[in-house]
């Protein structure tokens, strides 16, 4: 049994309950015990670092201090935005012991910061610590037939010197994870474009334009579903979709799911556990593709053979 310190983030108890729920199911299946940080607070993303200097460090730092007390090796974070704040803060503190000392002594009451805990996003945790092999072994219902576009958003892999995880331009971890579940991950060029999360309330015009472009490209890539790992991305892409459709006068209709929902599905949990009614864009239609395997076109097969023949030395 692996143990992990869990930071759900504010959305997990609100907009992204389905993420939180399925994450817990999946982790249980994978034999991981999640210990939620008692009495955690909001990390302040993104307002704190936009507006203030000290609070931007202090808010995530309090969580880090609390997390260290649980004495697990890793802290897993559900929301990409929280993850980024936590990582950036940790980097600042580790590189800058004076800053750590200053904030620790002036603002935070809960105890000393030591910098001992490893911060990972839940996707990163699945990919790096659990491993695709283990995940594959738990699959009871292959998702074969489902074409997914994996959307990582900006903060999961960027900036590179903060996250140290996957490529900032064309990450593949979620794609590989989806393929381990049996789904087909399509080529998707907008994997790491920003959806405009921090403007989701204050500047909807921007969000609609950015998210619209992502949806458009995803649709074009032939995916049935967009898979995400962040509640903010999910709500932007899902909740704003009807508005976007209205503005662009096109029908997009592509559901946006959390990777954990698909994992839960592949692990054999019934559909009702996925909390599908929470989605604004209905999911059920897309999931019907599971099991429908398109025959590989003759042409492709041929070229594949030809390529093999060419590369081989006669």
């Amino acid at each position: 049994m692996n143990k992990i310190t869990y930071f759900p983030g504010c959305s997990a108890h609100g907009t992204s309950e389905e993420f939180d729920h399925t994450l817990k199911l999946v982790m249980k299946t994978l034999d991981v015990q999640m210990e939620e940080i008692p009495d955690w607070n909001c990390c302040g993303a993104t307002s704190a670092h936009v507006m203030t200097e000290n609070l931007a460090i202090a808010l995530p730092m309090r969580n880090l201090v609390l997390a260290e007390k649980l004495e697990n090796k890793t802290m897993g974070i559900a929301c990409a935005s929280c993850y980024s704040r936590m990582k950036v803060t940790k980097k600042h503190l580790d590189e800058n012991p004076n800053l750590a000392k200053k904030i620790n002594s002036t603002i935070i009451d809960e105890g000393e910061y030591h910098g001992t805990i490893d911060v990972k996003s839940m996707l990163q945790y699945c990919f790096e610590e659990i491993g695709l092999e283990t995940i594959k072994s738990k699959v009871t219902k292959s998702l074969a037939g489902l074409k997914v576009a994996c959307y990582y958003g900006c903060l999961l892999t960027r900036p590179k010197d903060v996250t140290h995880f996957d490529s900032p331009e064309y990450p593949m971890s979620m794609d590989l994870l989806m393929e381990a579940l049996g789904a087909k991950a399509v080529d998707f060029d907008y994997k790491t474009e920003c959806c405009g999360a921090s403007f989701s309330i204050s500047n909807t015009e921007v969000v609609e334009s950015l998210s619209g472009k992502i949806l458009e490209v995803a649709k074009e890539s032939g995916a049935h579903v967009i898979v995400v790992a962040c509640p903010l991305c999910q709500s932007n892409l899902d909740m704003r979709q009807p508005d976007i459709e209205k503005h662009t006068k096109t029908k997009i209709n592509i559901p946006v799911m959390y990777f954990t929902q698909l994992m839960a599905l592949a692990f054999g949990f019934p559909e009702k556990e996925l909390k599908l009614p929470k989605h604004i864009v209905p999911v059920e239609e897309a999931l019907k593709n599971i099991g429908k395997i398109e025959p590989e076109p003759e042409k492709i097969k041929k070229t594949k053979k030809a390529v093999e023949a060419e590369s081989e030395v006669v």
Partner: peptide, 8 residues
């Protein structure tokens, strides 16, 4: 130059 899709 991953952002250009070099290799892909």
């Amino acid at each position: 130059y991953e952002e250009y899709g070099v290799g892909r």
